[in-house]
Simulated scan of single mutants.
Amino acid sequence: MLSGGPDTSALPVIAVVGPTGSGKSDLGVELALALDGEVINADALQFYRGMDIGTAKITVDERKGVAHHLLDTMDITEEASVADFQARCRGVVTDIHSRGKRAIMVGGSGLYVRAALDTLEFPGTDPVIRKRLEEECDAFGLAPLRARLEQVDPVSAARLGDARRVIRALEVHELTGRPFSSFMPQRQYHQPAVQIGLSVDRALLRERLANRVHAMVDAGLLREVERLDAEGLRQGKTASRALGYSQFLKVLDGQSDVQQAAEETIVATRQFARRQLTWFRADPRIQWLDWQDPARLAKAVELAGHS
């Protein structure tokens, strides 16, 4: 059959995943150069303009001329939305593939990666319902809300711990009449995809993460937090909770010093890396490569279906 352009229907999305500090950004660039591709950011905190040092955002020089999408798209006062990311990311994938190039998604935000790759339905939101539930939580604590969730959605009640997620689950149930857990996806790709995970030596990763936090401090993390604080960092529900930023806001408030904030950031970052590994290890479709394998690029290119 004759066609007016390249057949892009069979091109898989390539996703490079794994814990923070494992070298995903570098591999994404290397793959893009090898496969004539473009990178799509799937790290929720790298959406934010100005959050550069603390998120280890890839620099312009490190991108080596490769186009990067969905970086620096939001103000720090905005709240990141998985549903919005899903729509925007899929639009970018379509655009990249329509030009005959390869779409390479890079990031460690597991739910965002899954939202882009998998068949996943997002229920709507209702700010009135959410505000009422938040006010109930403020007035009476989380326990009554959790008890209510256990009655209408015991699966979610067993999975969700913090107030924000419990409130979201109750909001969805009240809005749709369905339990929040019913919206959880099967592991079924929305379109062809290849997931490449970077497998790490945990002891080496722990040391690397500590060194990276100290390097961030030396690079001016406190100054970055101070500047963002003046721009409304504390008003951002997503940005203000980011690793490093919440800890260094305490320094600005006189509740901590730089050394203590750095140590707390290291601990929190290591915990986050463990959660990422748990999330990604649960997906049997991910094909793992050793993060320090000298041949990892060649193996990644082969996994991407391009030898």
Rank of each mutant, 00 (worst) to 15 (best):
D229G: 05
E231R: 01
E231G: 00
G232D: 05
G232I: 03
G232H: 04
L233C: 10
R234I: 03
Q235E: 04
Q235S: 06
T238M: 11
T238N: 12
T238S: 12
A239N: 00
S240C: 06
R241Q: 13
A242V: 08
Y245D: 08
S246P: 00
S246M: 07
F248N: 05
L249H: 04
K250Q: 14
K250G: 08
V251N: 04
V251F: 12
L252H: 00
D253G: 10
Q255C: 01
D257E: 07
D257W: 12
V258S: 05
V258C: 07
Q259C: 09
A261F: 04
T265Y: 01
T265F: 02
T265W: 01
I266Q: 05
V267I: 06
V267A: 02
A268K: 08
Q271N: 14
Q271S: 14
A273L: 05
R274H: 11
R274P: 00
Q276Y: 08
L277N: 05
T278V: 14
W279Y: 15
R281T: 14
D283G: 09
D283Y: 08
D283E: 13
R285K: 08
R285P: 06
Q287E: 12
D290Q: 13
D290F: 15
W291L: 14
Q292M: 15
D293S: 15
D293W: 15
P294D: 11
P294S: 10
